[in-house]
């Protein structure tokens, strides 16, 4: 039996999804739907935009205005949609490779403009759709099909990247900490400005297998054991933070939003004409 949440927010005839057994993406997608429902958003005014990759199939399953674009370009398409119709709540679904490699330029500039777009990164540390190549968030020394001797790249911290670029809401959650993730997504959507949620997912099929991380359950347990809430982390000694990563809210500020600023220009100069 499908829950009311699924019935209300998904295209039932498009399910089941294409993701592998054990993939974390379905949990994050559900969390998004829960957040949208909790906020009571008008479905007609929600537009979900994605790029290319495993993550980017999500909008096809969701019963909103949905746009599946080209690799890396979701934020640029979304910028066009949002500026053309600022009434729309625009949410971008992207992956670690999609948003921080091929789409890296769009990511930093969309953040810089502080345009009211919420970006949910389904971050599984690997290119899944193409079969397990290392991505900009694959940890150094980990393996991928294009890093057979270990990855010598350094990984991006996507939260720090967009914080530096000008995003006004930045947070990280995981596919394990679902309730927290839903709350974070709610806050990200509510922020009037550029918001990013780095949603840590798991890819047992490629990243897990290449790096001997065990089953999906073991990978979920890793998320549970290794994630430390940023508020808790402040009170812990450094030795307790070794090999941990931080989740929770990193930034929540208010700055002028792009489409509002543009509408001010229209209001001022259209009137004077």
């Amino acid at each position: 039996m499908s829950s009311q949440l699924i019935k209300n927010n998904f295209r039932m005839d498009r399910l089941p999804h294409i993701w592998c057994p054990g993939c974390g993406h379905g949990i994050i997608m559900r969390s998004m739907a829960q957040a949208i429902q909790n906020l009571g958003l008008d479905k007609q005014k929600v537009c979900i935009v994605s790029g290319i990759g495993c993550s980017s199939r999500a909008p096809g399953y969701m019963d909103f205005n949905t746009l599946h674009t080209t690799h890396g370009r979701a934020l640029a398409f979304a910028t066009g949609v949002k500026l053309a119709n600022p009434e729309l709540k625009v949410i971008v679904v992207t992956g670690d490779g999609d948003c921080s490699a091929i789409g890296g330029n769009h990511l930093i500039h969309t953040a810089r403009r502080n345009i009211d777009i919420t970006t949910i990164v389904f971050n599984n540390n690997i290119y899944g759709m193409t079969g397990g190549q290392y991505s900009p968030t694959t940890p150094t020394n980990d393996f991928g099909t294009t890093a057979p001797f270990g990855n010598i790249d350094k990984a991006f911290d996507i939260c720090k990247l967009v914080d530096g670029a000008g995003a006004t809401y930045v947070a990280r959650g995981t596919a394990y900490h679902v309730n927290q993730l839903t709350k974070i997504i709610e806050k990200a959507i509510s922020n009037i400005g550029f918001s990013l949620v780095d949603a840590i997912s798991i890819c047992p099929t490629y990243y897990g297998r290449k790096n001997k991380k065990g089953t999906a359950v073991q990978m979920m347990n890793y998320l549970k054991d290794s994630a430390v809430d940023t508020k808790v982390a402040e009170k812990l000694p450094p030795e307790k933070l070794e090999n941990k990563f931080f989740i929770g809210e990193f930034k929540n500020t208010t700055e002028p939003e792009y489409t509002e600023e543009y509408m001010k220009i229209i209001k001022k100069y259209q009137k004077e004409r």
């Binding site: 674009t69 910028t79 066009g80 949609v81 053309a84 729309l88 330029n105």
Partner: peptide
């Protein structure tokens, strides 16, 4: 802006094309 329209200078040519398509889909 004088006719209530929107202009945006994007970060690159690719984004310019992408946003143009987005603007059209929004009507």
């Amino acid at each position: 802006p004088l006719v209530g329209g929107k202009f945006i200078q994007m970060e690159d040519e690719i984004a310019g094309m992408a946003a143009t398509i987005g603007g059209s889909l929004a009507g």
